[in-house]
Amino acid sequence: MASVDIEIATRKYSLACRDGEEAHLRTVAAIVDRKARDAGGALGNLSEARQLLYASLLLADELKERREGGGGPVEAEPDPAIADALERLAERMETLAARLERGHEAP
């Protein structure tokens, strides 16, 4: 099992992945980072959870448009495996953002 260091929205993460998938993980992490930065730039000062939530929603929106034949601003022809991985990542990030939001709410 390999380990990859990535950065998303100025936060560093160390993730495990299968041997040989390091470049793939770095590529999809760069996409998520770009979307998180876009969200932060467009919407101003966001909490980390909200920035990741909006990044997830932007990615999910692009995937949905692509699947419906609307094209969308995808930089290259998407690999179905990458699209599926991004969709799963978006769902996980939405769940994480919801958990983080609940943790920051006053009791």
Rank of each mutant, 00 (worst) to 15 (best):
G40N: 06
R92E: 14
I31E: 11
A81S: 13
Y54D: 06
Q51S: 12
E7Y: 03
A60L: 06
E21T: 08
C17A: 03
V4Y: 00
P107W: 07
K12H: 01
R18L: 11
T27M: 10
S14H: 12
D19M: 09
E94I: 05
V74M: 09
A39E: 02
S56A: 15
E21M: 08
Q51K: 15
G71C: 03
C17T: 11
M93F: 10
L96I: 11
M1T: 15
L52R: 01
E101H: 11
A81W: 05
D19C: 06
A42W: 00
L100Y: 01
T27V: 09
E7W: 05
D19V: 14
E75H: 11
A30I: 03
A85F: 04
R99Y: 08
E65N: 13
I8W: 00
L15Y: 00
Y13F: 14
K12Y: 07
D84N: 13
R66T: 14
G70R: 05
G41K: 00
N45K: 13
P78L: 14
D19P: 08
A85M: 05
L89S: 08
L46S: 10
A9I: 09
R50T: 07
S14M: 12
A49T: 05
D19S: 12
G20T: 01
R67P: 08
G44P: 03
T95D: 04
E91I: 13
I6T: 04
R99N: 05
E22H: 00
A106T: 14
R102D: 11
K35R: 14
L57G: 08
S3D: 13
L96H: 12
L59T: 04
G70W: 02
V74I: 15
D33Y: 00
A49K: 00
R99G: 08
E94K: 09
T10G: 08
G40H: 01
A36N: 02
A30F: 00
L25I: 04
E62T: 13
E94T: 11
T10M: 03
R67E: 15
G40S: 07
A85E: 10
D61H: 13
S3F: 10
A16K: 11
Y13D: 02
D61C: 04
A60W: 05
A97V: 05
A81V: 09
A60V: 02
E7C: 07
A30Y: 05
E77C: 08
T10L: 08
L59A: 01
T95I: 07
